[in-house]
Design a protein around this nucleic acid. Structure first.
Lengths: 248, 248
DNA sequence: ATTTGAAAGTGTAAAAATGACACACAGACT
DNA sequence: AGTCTGTGTGTCATTTTTACACTTTCAAAT
């Protein structure tokens, strides 16, 4: 005898997404603007996130919520972890805001955080649902977010720093064709420290994940850079089989 | 106007703990025995875990549940992540068992998994609550567990393999005094591959986290080994400040 | 007393990886 | 023609890695 579970929102579990994009200069994070907020001094910005449905798994929920709030689809998401302080909804402005969007605004909510890396050019987010707006903000400019979203962001940044030591990164962040300098700058942005240009180039080249397109940048007021693309097969191979010595 | 939240179990969120111990030979995992189970062929074993209370955070819940089920206290737990497939309670035996211990046995539950490394000698678990027994089982002998606990175990093992590349490991797993061979075997157990003895010793020595006690094993039928202890200050220092080149 | 079994402990040489470092080049713009 | 700006390149000294084999010390058995 099966009991039918109707598909309804679970008032106790949400997902939140930290979407990183790279504008060839610095790391950005996708946030939603909640519009006018009760407490003037509070941040209007939040990570895209919402409650899960009882019939979907966590990953599905993250994809759905991200699409609902920003229109972004087809994004590879990776779980960071769960955040469940009973006090994570402690700011007055957040409580008031929840009243306007939740059936059970007082419920204890634990949230499961995800992060992703995307090509900004491919994803021009648009607002929808309760997001008055969805926008890219430089990761390092963010000092405050709704709920515990700032903590989640810090967790995501840390996660990314760890990940870059173990795996190649960039395939999902850079445009199809890119220069070594852009990749270099990406690594510096993530690691938040300068890397020697020549040593970086040597190390990356040795990984053998890049294909030189024998094309040059055009229209730049300096020596044009050579363009590269990723060799997807080798890139995936390294991700699969791990890599020990990414000693950045 | 504060609404008082009474402290009650949250029917939708649980925690599960993967506790690793090392018996100087191999890795073991702490599991509870649920006793006779409805379906003969199903595993009686499960990870220690249970629902959280609404007024406790996830970490606290994990500590509490672990103590309630095994008597273990004072254990450092680290989060692995959330597991939330809507179908994770799909085995018939598990459904029946939940009837006997839960107020809302049909509820959708997402679980947050934790793992820990402990000295087996210090923690002789004892059964309590709904655990008929709590026992150490060799990690590699486990082929089946309740719910999705086998998946969680695999996740924990993977997590540990990653961690060992970034941090020193052993302080929490080995007895106060130990030999280099024991540490060596620990690393081999976790990484699940042989490591060259001399290279391993050199690498560990260079980390400078060990203090030679100038004591020897006694009563062994072969050349007695020198005993070491960890230099806790340096050990913690490396954990704090990270370490790039743990290329095992 | 001698032998045996079992794990402990030790060094080197070749190859690979790392880190530090400076200058010529190509194109755009004036 | 000259200037500005970011691109691209090589070497050397040092450190790290890898592969590899024999002697030592004790307990137990003979």
């Amino acid at each position: 005898m099966e009991k039918k579970i109707v598909s309804e929102l679970n008032p106790n579990v949400s997902v939140d997404c930290v979407i990183f994009g790279f504008d060839l200069e610095k790391l950005n994070v996708l946030v939603i603007d909640r519009g006018e907020i009760a407490v003037e001094s509070s941040s209007r910005l939040a990570l895209p996130g919402n409650l899960i449905y009882n019939n979907e798994n966590l990953d599905q929920a993250a994809y759905r919520v991200l699409e609902e709030l920003t229109g972004l689809t087809n994004i590879y998401l990776e779980q960071i972890g769960a955040f469940g302080d009973p006090n994570r909804i402690c700011k007055e402005a957040d409580k008031v805001w929840l009243q306007s969007i939740r059936a059970e605004p007082e419920a204890r909510v634990i949230t499961v955080a995800y992060f992703s890396l995307v090509k900004m050019e491919d994803y021009m987010p648009h607002a929808s649902s309760f997001a008055k707006n969805a926008e890219w903000v430089p990761a390092n400019d963010i000092t405050d977010l709704a709920f515990d979203h700032f903590d989640i962001l810090q967790g995501a940044k840390f996660n990314l720093k760890q990940k870059i030591k173990i795996q190649p990164i960039g395939f999902n962040l850079l445009p199809e064709k890119f220069t070594l300098s852009q990749l270099h700058k990406l690594y510096e942005s993530i690691l938040d420290k300068p890397l020697d240009k020549r040593n970086f180039r040597r190390k990356i080249q040795k990984l053998d994940i890049l294909t030189n397109l024998n094309e040059k940048q055009a229209g730049v007021p300096h020596k044009p850079s050579e363009l590269y693309k990723f060799n997807e097969a080798k890139y995936q191979d390294i991700i699969q089989n791990g890599y020990n010595n990414f000693g950045f």
